[in-house]
Amino acid sequence: MAMVYEKSKMLTDAPLHYCPGCTHGIIHKLVAESLEELEAGGRAVGVAPVGCSVMAYNYFSCDMVEAPHGRAPAIATGLKRALPDGVIFTYQGDGDLAAIGTAETVHAATRGENITVIFVNNAIYGMTGGQMAPTTLPGQVTQTTPYGRDVTKAGFPVRVCEMLSTLSGVAYAERVSVDTVPNIRKAKAAIKKAFETQIAGKGFSIVEVLSTCPTNWGLTPVEALQWLRDNMIPYYPLGVYQDRTANEKGVF
């Protein structure tokens, strides 16, 4: 019998600490499989965030750096400038990327920094126990929006891909989801394309992955996927928001 599906060699043997059904694990696999298929693991350096995926440095078998909260794109910038031939990526959640690290994200993007950002959006702060995130939906109940996010007081969610797509340094920006197997396949293709964009030196690439947090949403893992479909995808439509990869020089 031939192997149809097995764990990527770009992942270590360390058991993941994520809650049952958390889609971080799926997204880790997609990043690992993409790097493996591109034979980029040996020159890859990943940057882990602060948040649920803080210990991602234990899971990817490439070299890894753990960043202060929100600063991953700045660290990736330093790495990339020191290792121009490296394949440098950040793996960040919504609080990390779209709240405390907004400046680092926007400026790495507008510089056309030749790095890849994997942005995991699950509309909540997971690690600290389910507080409102910059991407928490209007009306969504969290620990710190117990009556639902009131946009007159807490403002509106940030649509990261839409915002970044206006910047000239962004070579590739796509929003994907991991709620179904076909969508997981599309997410993988997007992540692989983002790495290819970087390897070709075409500029900043970001893949926003709509993800779940069954524990803090108070749903079973399967219900959480349905909640994502019913609530997140309408607010955060899937699709390609910027693609300058057809240009020979990318964004430059």
Partner: peptide, 8 residues
């Protein structure tokens, strides 16, 4: 099943 399993 393999593709969606978060824990490989």
């Amino acid at each position: 099943c393999g593709i969606i399993c978060p824990d490989s």
